[in-house]
Computed example of a mutant assay.
Amino acid sequence: MVRAELDGWAGDFAANQSCGDVTVLFDRVVLRHLPRIEAFLARGLIFTVLAHAITRAGV
């Protein structure tokens, strides 16, 4: 369950990396997704797991 939720979030994160043909700053994407990131961390995931998920999603 966590893997599917994490992969879904990572896909959303990757989709927010661009707006049309403009690349959105990584910092802004992180801020937009900060509540979800904090929720994953509260559930015991670590930043390395999050980084691998967004890498798999194409970031």
Rank of each mutant, 00 (worst) to 15 (best):
V2M: 11
V2G: 13
R3N: 11
R3T: 12
R3C: 03
A4H: 12
E5S: 07
E5A: 12
D7V: 02
G8T: 10
G8W: 00
G8N: 08
W9V: 04
W9Y: 02
A10G: 13
G11I: 00
F13H: 04
F13G: 01
F13I: 00
A14H: 13
A14N: 14
A14F: 06
A14E: 05
A15M: 05
A15Y: 11
A15S: 15
Q17D: 07
Q17C: 11
G20S: 10
G20F: 06
D21A: 06
D21S: 11
V22C: 03
V22N: 12
T23F: 08
V24P: 01
L25C: 12
D27F: 04
R28E: 13
R28N: 13
V30F: 10
V30D: 05
L31D: 15
L34S: 07
L34I: 08
P35K: 01
R36S: 07
R36E: 11
R36T: 11
I37C: 03
I37P: 03
E38H: 08
E38C: 02
E38L: 09
A39L: 05
F40C: 00
L41W: 05
A42H: 04
R43H: 11
R43D: 10
R43Y: 05
G44C: 07
I46V: 14
I46Y: 10
F47E: 14
F47V: 15
T48I: 04
T48A: 12
V49A: 07
V49Q: 14
A51P: 00
H52M: 05
H52K: 11
H52D: 13
H52L: 03
A53P: 06
I54L: 00
T55K: 09
R56H: 03
A57T: 11
